[in-house]
Computed example of a mutant assay.
Amino acid sequence: MHLRATETTLTGVAGLVGFGVFLRELDVDAELQRTFGRLKPDSRVVFPMAAQMRLLIDAAVAGEARVFGLEAPANDPLFVHLAGGVVPSIDRVYRDLRRFDDKALAALDSMLAEHGLAPLAKAPPDIIHLDVDTTVEPLFGSQEGARPGPNPRYHGRPSYHPRLVRVAETNTVIGAQLRPGDTNFGNDDVPDVERCLDRVRAAAPEAAVYVRIDAAGDCTQLLRAIADKRAFFLTKPRLTRDLAGAISLVTRWKTVDWDADGRPRRQVAEVLFRRGEWADLAARVIAVRTLDRTHARPIYLWGDLDYPVQVYLTN
C-alpha cells in the first residue's frame, strides 16, 4: 500500500466506459454534434456543445444530477479522461447551457422521444400504458425559474415542478418539461400530452393506449383531449362533498378479493355520479374499498365499516 498525493489508477466510475460504448452504438455522440453543434459553431472552441452535453450525461449516470455536482467527479482520473483530459469549470458549463434557445429545447425533446420510443418500434406491444406524472424538486438557492409553490416537505421553498411522460412497458421517458414550482398541472399541459400520444400512435398504431395520471389529472379539457386521441384515461377525481355522498349511498358492491376467513377484503362499485363540468365527457366513476392499509391518507365514508375508499375516473 503506497500513500500518494493522487492515485491515477483508481476510479469510481468504471461503468462509464461500457455506457459510452452503448451510446456510441446508438449514434448519440454524432447526433448531439449534428443537432446542437450550431450553438457553438466556431471550430476553435475548446469545449464543443456536444462534448458538454455528453459530460452532463456521464455525470448524471455517475449520480451527479446537478451541474454543481461536477466538482466531485472532476477528481476522478477516468471521468477526466472521458471528458477529453480537462473538466470545464462550472461557470463555463452554465454559460453554455444558457445558449439553449427554443429550437434547441424542441430538438432535445424530440431526441429524448426518439430514443424512448425506439423499443416500441422494434416490438410494439398490444397495450401501452403512459404515466403522466409531476413531482416537486425543492431548491436551496436562487436558481433560474425556481419559484415557491406547493411543497409538501419544504414549505415556502422555491422549487421546480417538472412533468414527465413515461412508457410503463419499456420504462422509458418520451416527454419531459422543466417548469417553475408554482405551475399547476392542467389545461396548459394538453398540447404536450397530445404530442406524446401522437408519438406513441406513430410508433405503435395498433396498440391500445392507457394514460394514467394522479389526482392532478381531474381536468376536463385534458381528459377530453385524451379521449379524442382514441386513448383511455385513468385518474383520480377530486373527492368533493357531493361525490363522497354519492359513494356513501352505494348499496351494491362487487367483492373481488377475500381474506383467509372468507370475508370481503376488496370491493368495487360503479358510482352513478356526474359532475357538471363532465357534461359531454364519456367517463365512469369507479370506487374501490379495501381493508388493506396501502394508502398514507385513508378516507373513511362509513361509520360502521372499516373500509377506506379510493375513487377513479375512467372512460
Rank of each mutant, 00 (worst) to 15 (best):
Q267F: 02
G186M: 05
D228Y: 05
Q33D: 14
L16V: 01
T8W: 13
P41Y: 01
N151K: 03
S110M: 11
D109W: 01
V288A: 02
V211H: 05
P138I: 01
A107F: 03
V93I: 13
A207L: 04
T172G: 04
F140Q: 07
T35D: 06
A269T: 04
N151D: 02
G145T: 07
D198Y: 04
L56E: 08
C196G: 03
I127Y: 13
R297K: 15
R265L: 06
R224T: 15
D96M: 08
L97T: 05
T135N: 12
V209D: 10
F273A: 00
R24M: 07
V165K: 07
V67F: 04
G63I: 03
P48E: 01
L139V: 14
L234G: 04
P88G: 08
L222A: 11
Q221A: 15
Q221F: 02
A74C: 08
D96T: 07
P88S: 10
Q52M: 15
V209R: 01
L117V: 03
H115W: 08
D198R: 10
S142V: 06
A287V: 03
F232M: 07
R274P: 03
D91P: 05
T220Q: 11
L301R: 11
L197P: 10
D214Q: 08
D42K: 15
R274G: 07
H2M: 13
L16S: 03
R289T: 12
V250Y: 02
A296K: 12
L222N: 11
E270M: 02
P298T: 10
L130S: 13
E25V: 06
D42Y: 07
K40G: 07
A51Q: 13
L108Q: 09
V200M: 00
V136R: 08
L82G: 08
Q143M: 01
P180G: 00
R95G: 07
V250N: 00
Y94L: 11
L10M: 11
V250C: 06
G217I: 01
